[in-house]
Design a protein around this nucleic acid. Sequence first.
DNA 1: GTCTATATATTGATAGAC
DNA 2: GTCTATCAATATATAGAC
Lengths: 231, 231
Amino acid sequence: MPPIKVKNAGKSVSAKRKSGVTGKAVTRIQREKQDAILEAALDVFSLHGFRGATIDQIAEQAGMSKPNLLYYFPRKEEIHKRLMKTMLDTWLQPLREFSAEGDPIPEIRSYIRRKLEMARDYPRESRLFANEMLQGAPRLIDILEGELKDLVDEKVAILLSWMDEGKIARTDPYHLIFSIWATTQHYADFDVQVRAVLGKDRGGEGRFEDAARFLENLFMQGIAPTKLPSR
Amino acid sequence: MPPIKVKNAGKSVSAKRKSGVTGKAVTRIQREKQDAILEAALDVFSLHGFRGATIDQIAEQAGMSKPNLLYYFPRKEEIHKRLMKTMLDTWLQPLREFSAEGDPIPEIRSYIRRKLEMARDYPRESRLFANEMLQGAPRLIDILEGELKDLVDEKVAILLSWMDEGKIARTDPYHLIFSIWATTQHYADFDVQVRAVLGKDRGGEGRFEDAARFLENLFMQGIAPTKLPSR
DNA sequence: GTCTATATATTGATAGAC
DNA sequence: GTCTATCAATATATAGAC
């Protein structure tokens, strides 16, 4: 699996000299400090959730004092908000790229592969998201019911049209998407368990290749158009 | 899906009059208080993780004062330890019941159904477990590498023998189990997201029936013996 | 067994010197 | 911008009266 390219996870080019929130000019050193904070915060929030994370921990990991950190992000919640924003952008990219243009089977296979690559390359983002879900998504529920639902509905329509055309087996498109999410993200969120169960001999880096092979096979069988429609 | 019976989630019969830890006699009222605490703690821990949960919250939810709670469980960690213990017992039951005796296809189908019923009926236990995984399983790693790995290895051997006999398709048994775990637990751990995406019309109680139909179909296709072995 | 009161540490956040 | 010092709130846990 090759590394995947993702939209600039930092600030957008147009915001290079202005902070979107405050409108104040932003120097290179300011951006570097902010990035160090966000990087450290991703570690801590993804591990302990919002309430379990402490500013102390984040500041230490970022290599600065607590008041210094609070100079850049006056409130704990704002760090978290920023992380969630950029995380969601990265996280939903594979689904956005899911296209009606290509052939159905390769398109779905490719989506699975990209999602698994995300779990491999961005496990902290996956855990940050999972933490928020476990807590009932108090800071994300609006996006789930709005932007995310709209995006999924759009892709579900594509899947349904493919089913109508007999290009893939008739099955529940929502639960198909849920299953792809669940199986791929599992390798980030439950990584400890995966490693522990596979043991030393099989728990190395090769586990993602094995997972990719298995998942592509599983879902390709599940949507093969030669099969009878699910009852 | 009928409700499932699970081994007594409270104290075992033989421990009815003795507390396993202290050896002291335990009255009915003591058990009731302990149960109320554990019940409330399951709510709070499953929502906020170990560090994010507070004794205040648990005590309030259990309807007692903080010192009163600490009379029964002198340390926060001991409440969590007890919860993890009983949770794991409940949680691994479906896998323990997975038997080499029955026919392969119905046996696997039945395992999927039971795991999904667990997600439906014990979502808090699922989230408690997920929270621990996200944190790197600091309080559970020994069990994962010991008891759980042994149990999985045992069931993997059964799956492999079925593959050798041509009764199910040849595929990676570990990742098959991971996929079943991931897809079923998803409906407990990511419940908010599932509801949000399905919307008002499809996000009701029927979602578990839909999920069961989809998952059984997906995995039955994936392991059907008529298929060629996965390359 | 349950309460009020409190000890002790940690938390998010601020003040003000430099 | 960064620091030390510190505040107010909250955290786990204990003391001791009843």
